[in-house]
Design a protein around this nucleic acid. Structure first.
Length: 506
RNA sequence: GCCGCGUUCGUCUAAGGGUUAGGACACCACCCUUUCACGGUGGUGAUACGGGUUCGAAUCCCGUACGCGGUACCA
């Protein structure tokens, strides 16, 4: 193991969306590539947002994708605990240390007072007044109050938070692995809360403390975190030293068709956003997942990897192993990527074709049975799946492409047959029916040969007979090659279907 | 408003000073196939705009426009 340690730190709020999985993926690839560790840390410090079952969901989703963490609340590790709520005590210490050193301060403002401040300061020019160095002198905090007043308030257990004291005039900059040099004026950043009144840290404090304690070396996160980077950098500077700070990589956002990718928008356009189905235990609301939509995990991981990264070549289909080998942070794109469901389906289609049927036979079988088809034998199903997989983009497409193997047609597309139907053709099929009884070798090539020879005897072009044959077997103009269908159906079933069809064709 | 990040075919992207700006998805046409797909061949289609720098700019610099993100005791 190298000293490369990366982490994914989701808050258990339910579901795991595309952007989240891609962040995990890049973390994972980077860790594996450098023979380092991939850590799953749970950010459950916001009681209001914590959702029952959400943590299990994250494990299941990662496991489905094949992105198993090395360390986590469940996998254990030397740097535990891996849930923030279980690390509560340590955060206060660091916050107090910052106060003592003058980098942070106690703030006693009530929510109502904050609201009042914002209302008073709000103008058209400044729609979102911040609690910053220009404002903090007018608020109730240990900077504006005397030491004695502050002490009294603390003695009386007055609810308070700890805020970072952003320098009035300073410049913070860092080198992002993807974007290069990024810099901020500290005077324009507000005094973020570090420790909440309930004693829980905010993300800002927690991420810095935990990254330090867990010896994180590289940190990948979404671009939405870029604006708070100066706060984190300052915290590193004050607490542990900037030289110990992990290297940052802010990943481009994944966008929806008209803007930010949201559950709501995805639903509107009919595609999933979550890795797997998520049912909110509180509301009962079900959000569809890629897995249930019929995606293979290999395809899901592949398409996500390509959303913002490429290896510089024209290759698009990668196994996870290949991604580990070829992933390269320099090739991660800076701009946000719009998610295209059509292309996502193409990836899945490629993977369905690429993988042997055995890889997804159980899923397909379960789906067929769920929809009322009786699958008698796995061997036959495997032949069917192998035959029709190239026409399926999603695992759920297998039903439409194979149900006719399990069920004789209830109706026939007679409009496609009858206009050209005549006594000779009927005759042909009667004879073909008889001939099939004595066919010794029941396979596609042999059948086709017999069919064509007999057609020649009757002086009919085989093409003119193939469509009626198809309709006899499956009922309509669809499905794979007719002789392949007959092959799988077997002699008995094929004969039965021809027989029933001949009664119908008048 | 302020701050930050971004901008190559409709979409994902390649090209890191010199290419007829390449590929993939989607779309269209043809071929294959007397179903539909798969496959094959070809086609439509892009450097946001304006200034520089340079013999030469999609590429470097500045400005503008547009998009996105942030601006919570949420992450």
């Amino acid at each position: 193991m190298s000293n490369v340690r990366v982490r994914f730190a989701p808050s258990p709020t339910g579901g795991l969306h595309l952007g989240g999985v891609r962040t995990v993926l890049y973390n994972y690839l980077f860790a594996r590539q450098n023979k380092g560790s991939f850590i799953l840390r749970i950010e459950d410090t916001d009681q209001n947002r914590y959702v029952e079952g959400a943590e299990d969901y994250i494990y299941n989703a990662l496991s489905w994708c094949g992105l198993e963490p090395d360390e986590s609340p469940r996998h254990g590790g030397q740097y535990g605990p891996y849930r923030q709520s279980e690390r509560k005590e340590s955060y206060r210490r660091y916050a107090e240390k910052l106060v003592q050193e003058g980098h942070a301060y106690y703030a006693f403002d009530t929510p109502a007072e904050l609201e009042q401040m914002r209302n008073e300061l709000r103008t058209d020019e400044n729609p979102n007044p911040q609690y910053d160095h220009r404002v903090r002198g007018k608020m109730r905090n240990s900077l504006s109050l005397s030491a004695k007043e502050t002490e009294e308030l603390l003695q009386k257990d007055t609810p308070h938070v700890i805020r970072i004291r952003m320098p009035e005039k300073d410049k913070v900059s860092f080198t992002d692995m993807i974007r290069g040099e990024v810099s901020f004026e500290t005077g324009l950043v507000d005094d973020k809360v570090l420790l909440k009144a309930d004693g829980m840290p905010t993300y800002h404090l927690a991420v810095v403390v935990d990254d330090h304690l867990m010896e994180i070396s590289h940190a990948f996160r979404g671009e939405e975190w870029l604006p708070s980077a100066p706060v984190h950098i300052l915290l590193w500077r004050y607490l542990f030293g900037e030289d110990k700070m992990p290297q940052w990589a802010h990943l481009p956002l994944i966008l929806g068709p008209t803007g930010k990718l949201s559950k709501r928008e995805a639903m509107k356009y009919g595609f999933p956003v979550f890795a797997m189905n998520w049912k909110d235990p509180a509301t009962g609301e079900l959000t569809e997942g890629f897995r249930e939509r019929g995606f293979l995990p290999q395809a899901f991981v592949n398409l996500l990897a390509m959303l913002g990264w490429n290896d510089g070549s024209e290759q698009e289909i990668f196994t996870l192993q290949e991604l580990v080998e070829k992933f390269n942070i320099d090739h991660v794109h800076k701009g946000g990527a719009k998610f295209d469901f059509e292309k996502a389906k193409w990836f899945n289609h490629e993977w369905i074709k690429k993988l042997p049927a055995s890889h997804y036979l159980p899923e397909v079988k379960a789906q067929l049975q769920q929809r009322g088809l009786h699958v008698e034998e796995d061997g036959q199903l495997e032949r069917i799946v192998t035959l029709v997989k190239e026409r399926c983009s999603l695992l759920t497409d297998f039903y439409d492409n194979s149900y006719f193997f399990f069920r004789a047609p209830a109706e026939y597309d007679t409009a496609a047959v009858l206009p050209k139907w005549n006594a000779e053709k009927r005759n042909f099929f009667h004879e073909f029916l008889k001939e099939t009884e004595s066919i010794t070798e029941w396979n596609s090539a042999f059948l086709e040969n017999a069919f064509k020879q007999l057609a020649a005897v009757h002086g009919i072009k085989p093409g003119e007979l193939q469509l009626p044959f198809r309709i006899m077997l499956v009922g309509g103009k669809f499905g794979p090659g007719v002789f392949d269908i007959a092959d799988i159906l077997g002699q008995k079933e094929t004969a039965a279907r021809i027989g029933s069809a001949l009664i119908q064709f008048k």
